[in-house]
Design a protein around this nucleic acid. Structure first.
Lengths: 236, 236
DNA sequence: ACCTGAACACCGTTCAAGT
DNA sequence: ACCTGAACACCGTTCAAGT
């Protein structure tokens, strides 16, 4: 429980305070989720009144931006000896892994503009890898958005129900089972496929779903590379 | 402007009232965005007190679910003579078109579970098309999620700044120009690619970006079909 | 069957004032 | 330089009470 006193000493330069704020925000996020992450509760956790936070941060949006960047600090760079495709796979999987590390992290990322140093660094890696693969400059950027957004939004969907039922003690399996029964109970003449595919619609294998989409995306990108050729500029 | 009086006559059966609520909610959404869509403002618009809404609807989440389904009513089914790939393209493009038709519609869809009749009907069409293409039952479901979520999340990203700057009179182009200058002003030694690709990172051609991703996804899916063969069951 | 009054337990943000 | 008191303008939701 260190850090409860916020700025113990030093000269209390604002950097330290922002850092403490973001750390506290991350802790609060893990305990209470996005829904519970309010400026007032964060202030309480820092032993301060809510109004004080606005000395360190313009508004809540700015705080969430800092928080998002902090979350991304844990993404590891892919090894240099990998192929471009392996590098991209690693990067996108790493993204998912890190987002699964904090409650509602994907929703924070999705709702926030990537301007912090960590996210910019990751963008550089992604863009550089795509340039190395031979995409045109325009396609590099489009592919980067596609892959980054895929990771973020997949995890956001995947964890949507993580918080909901935890309160009244229903496990993930119980929740999925309930949804499956809901699909199965639909009128079969109107929604025959939803009924018959209910088992797959509530497939608990999120890893498999993630890899399915990732492979499709990379196969699609690979095909573009083959078709369009290296139609673009040199890779500088 | 019909429907301003809510339930004029009939026997005021609850279906009518819910319909009027959802219509009013859609109007409020277009005027005020998700941020401005509150139960209290919606009640005001219906000439009623906020507490009354809870007679017709369990809570706000349920209302948003109904609203999401109403938004999806406008999605047209693809023509039957198209190939499976053309059908999927049409369906995903239609999805985007409809989501662009109401302010923050994509965010409503993204935050809501697809249980309404319109969304279920669209799911049937999507699943049926993928079955017709020859995917295994498991892959049908995975591909359906992939394509549906792509449309929703693409539009959510695409329209993220739609509302923000409108207040202090900055057009879309001005906003993009500001972001581009921000990237260009980054330290070139740390973020060389962000600086050099600033123009593409703020590309205003959303249609082009959307089609890039859609083509990649469909190419990727097509490849799976070729590779895995029709490994699954018959198409019943 | 449907609506209201009144309350409960919250929000983000501002700003003059304190130290 | 940093924090507080007090307020402003909101939220979603409940529930006894009205008609």
């Amino acid at each position: 429980m260190e850090g409860s006193g916020a700025k113990v000493r030093g000269r209390g330069h604002p950097v330290t305070d922002r850092k403490a704020m973001v750390e506290a925000a991350l802790g609060l996020l893990d305990e209470a989720g996005v829904e519970g992450l309010s400026m007032r509760r964060l202030a309480e956790r820092l032993g301060v009144k809510a109004a004080s936070l606005y000395w360190h941060v313009r508004n809540k949006e700015e705080l969430l931006g800092l928080l998002a960047d902090e979350i991304c600090a844990g993404v590891r760079e892919p090894r240099l000896d990998l192929s471009w495709r392996e590098k991209l796979e690693t990067l996108v999987r790493e993204n998912r892994r890190v987002l699964l590390g904090h409650r509602d992290a994907a929703r924070i990322l999705a709702g926030t503009v990537p301007t912090g140093p960590n996210r910019l660094r990751l963008a550089e890696t992604m863009l550089g890898t795509l340039i190395g693969a031979g995409f045109s400059r325009r396609d590099v950027v489009r592919a980067a958005f596609l892959l980054t957004d895929y990771a973020t939004h997949f995890v956001a969907e995947e964890t949507r129900f993580a918080s909901v039922g935890k309160a009244h003690g229903s496990s993930d399996e119980e929740k999925l089972a309930r949804v499956r029964r809901h699909f199965e109970a639909l009128p079969e003449d109107e929604y025959p496929l939803a009924v018959s595919l209910a088992g797959y619609l509530t497939d608990p294998d999120a890893d498999g779903r993630f890899e399915f989409g990732l492979e499709a995306l990379l196969d699609g990108l690979e095909k573009k590379l083959a078709t369009r050729g290296s139609s673009g500029e040199p890779s500088g």
